[in-house]
């Protein structure tokens, strides 16, 4: 199970982590399952932390098409 971590979204990884956390807390797991969940959780943690650390804000400027600007009044653009 722990090997199945693909490039999920941050959101998906985080909610899986929350799920694992709840499962581990429930304390009625088989030991092998608990350990494989723990391993998966640690791997997911690493992915989440790296995703956030490496993230760089993307800023895109959207240009309006000229014909989109409906009203003139451009003579008053002193502000």
């Amino acid at each position: 199970m722990a090997k199945k971590i693909i490039k999920n979204s941050f959101e998906a990884n985080l909610s899986r982590l929350e799920e694992i956390s709840a499962l581990l807390e429930s304390n009625n797991l088989k030991l092998e399952d608990a350990i494989s969940l723990f391993e998966e959780g640690i791997a997911l943690s690493r992915i989440c932390v790296n995703t956030l650390k490496d993230a760089e804000l993307k800023v895109t400027e959207l240009k309006k098409k000229l014909e989109d600007i409906s009203l003139p009044d451009d003579e008053e653009s002193e502000d």
């Binding site: 941050f10 995703t51 956030l52 993230a55 760089e56 804000l57 993307k58 800023v59 895109t60 400027e61 959207l62 240009k63 309006k64 989109d68 600007i69 409906s70 009203l71 003139p72 009044d73 451009d74 008053e76 653009s77 002193e78 502000d79």
Partner: peptide
């Protein structure tokens, strides 16, 4: 910082600002 901001430059003051804001919302 995981997000993308899509900025649409808009006139937010003075005459025509309302129209430009409306146009930006539509765009």
């Amino acid at each position: 910082p995981l997000i993308e901001l899509i900025i649409i430059p808009t006139k937010v003051q003075g005459s025509g600002a309302a129209e430009d804001i409306v146009d930006s919302i539509r765009t």
